[in-house]
Nucleic acid binder design. Sequence first.
DNA 1: GATTGGGTCGTTTTT
DNA 2: CGACCCAATC
Length: 744
Amino acid sequence: MNYLDTLNPSQRSAVEHIDGPLMVIAGAGSGKTRVLTYRIAYLIGNGIEPFHILALTFTNKASKEMRDRIQKIVGHEAKNIWMGTFHSVFAKILRIEGEKLGYTSNFTIYDTEDAQSVLKDILKEWNLDDKLYKPSYVYHRISKAKNALVSWKKYLQSSEWAFEDEKHGRHRIGEIYKEYASRCFKANAMDFDDLLFNTNLLISNFEEIRQKYQQKFQYILIDEFQDTNISQYSITRMLADKHCNICVVGDDAQSIYSFRGANIENILNFQRDYPNVKIIKLEQNYRSTQNIVCAANSVIKHNKFQLEKKVWTANEKGEKIRLLKANNEAEEARLIALSIFEEKNKRGLSNNHFAILYRTNAQSRALEEALRRLNIKYKIIGGMSFYQRKEIKDMIAYLRFSVNPLDEEAFKRIVNYPKRGIGENTIEKLLVTSHEKNIPFWNVLQQYESFFGKSRISQAINEFVTLIKSFQIQIQQKDAYEAALYIAKMSGVLRELYEDKTPEGKVRYENVQELLNSIKAFTDSPENTDKSLTSFLQQIALVSTADTELDQDAVTLMTIHASKGLEFKNVYVVGLEENLFPSQTMIENREDLEEERRLFYVAITRAEQKLTLSYALQRYRNGKLVACEPSRFLFEIDNRYIEKVQTVSSFSDFENSSPSKFSTQSFFSQHSTTPSYVHIPSPSFKPASASELRVGMRVEHQKFGFGIISEIDHNNQRAKVLFEHFGEKTLILSYAKLMIHLLN
DNA sequence: GATTGGGTCGTTTTT
DNA sequence: CGACCCAATC
């Protein structure tokens, strides 16, 4: 097996360990994915059947990538490995076995929005103060309980949880939890946490199911183990109970998901639960330069909680880490965009070698604008995903409701969209009757007249019921695509959007078409054996923001959380300001601050060759401009690895630097965003590359901006300039005074 | 029951 | 700045 020869001794011993518990502590960039894939290939090479292997990853993308890589070594057999995220694998199992718990196989998966909407209804009905009982907070609390395997019954009994709630004056959370669980159950729906919670119930309460899956999953592998929660660990432990062939891979220094219930102590628990565990540490980093690795180490050493580990690298020393200071958010974005532009020119890199990482999704705006101005292609991972758009959620709600007519959240979205004359009062009446008499509202709907009598409204409701029933028939008879197409047409959603001729309306129409295309792709793909609509819905409910394809040539913008597991030649980490990163809410708690620092560690270790950090002195928050201080994390990096970059960052800096380097000239242009030409000031100046020349500009003594040279035309002594502006959104130029700055 | 306008409010990270 | 909620009208 020649692929083994490419491994170092630690990696190799991890790969060749077949039986018994194994824990791999893998530092950043130490070839963790490689070890996992080779290990699975090695198991198969040693006669273990692929369908006896269960591999759990953090994102769908990671599992897809791993499956592809295994396939390259072992061939088509890789298809039979059970591989996926915790949520997707257990959703699959629940579809098969869920009846034991009272769910049907076409249960709905409620996303965060659906779940919070259920909670909102309860809080409203119970007249609870929605400041004290914010749906997001209640949801978080219930989620936390579920992930710690605390049922609503236990929650109500436990003094510990009640104590925590009473401390904040929220003594009714237990009751809300109970009501919420009951409503989800009646809707034949599970939220994200239920997928794990119910799997736990299934495996612990049903002997025959436990044995069945213990027998099936003889070899279990878990990636990103540091980010698993109690619920996830409990499932895998029960599954591994018989054969004890469980291999976990993780890095305590990269545990960044405690807000989702991730429990870093699982690493310690694992050693306690499996005393004969073999522990292997992967400490050589193959990804980054020495400077980057050392800087990362100098940061993480400030944390108290960590396993002993020395990450090192044999790579070259590399450049120092650059630190940029900007006056404000917009300028920070400009500096980054400019740096990418110059870096591309200087080293012939392409867009996909760059990533910009930030703490919160909202930070992407300024960056987008700056990149657009320089015509640099970019893509944003996360933020508002395709499936979260209103028109898509509406369309999906039709599909969901047709598949599962108990799905209350889907019902509420579509019952009066497009308009049918069924208003809020009617819906409210309907749902109250359903809850009070304990009759599924789908039944109330069908017998609306016998409850409320004949009226214009009952007419509308009957038509709606007939419509949905026709959809149900389509679903039974046709594949997912044909059924969905029928539903899109007959429901009136397509027509409604088609008739909207505003630009946004057109985009929405196209988006729904795009959704239909993706359903077509789903039914056409030979990899999907189950082509039902149910199966499609299940899959899309669990796609994550990090699953987006990365291969097109664009600069990647994303949160640090979404960047886990990825690597880029050049990385920019922006917004390093106190109260932003580390975030304000994290600063109050010492332990949380450690997690925040791990987040910084993750950000740094994404970079292969060049790392740039930046912060702004002013930033907009709540629409107000506030002064910012540099992040405490910046002071924790050992000075040896940092270079502070003096940037020409404002017009006055520009004007005050050495006068001999300037020349002024008049300048005419139609519009600021179109490229313009400027004359190169001194005939003797022959810039070797575009990046050696910058242009500053002043209009009417106050508006100002910078341009950068994108092309040099030596024959005509002129250069093409792309202008960008700050201070004004659009600036139509009629006359400007230019200052040409020669960097050399 | 639908449509419009004004006012308020808030900001972490995600399966 | 924008998303969301509520009250006042058609």
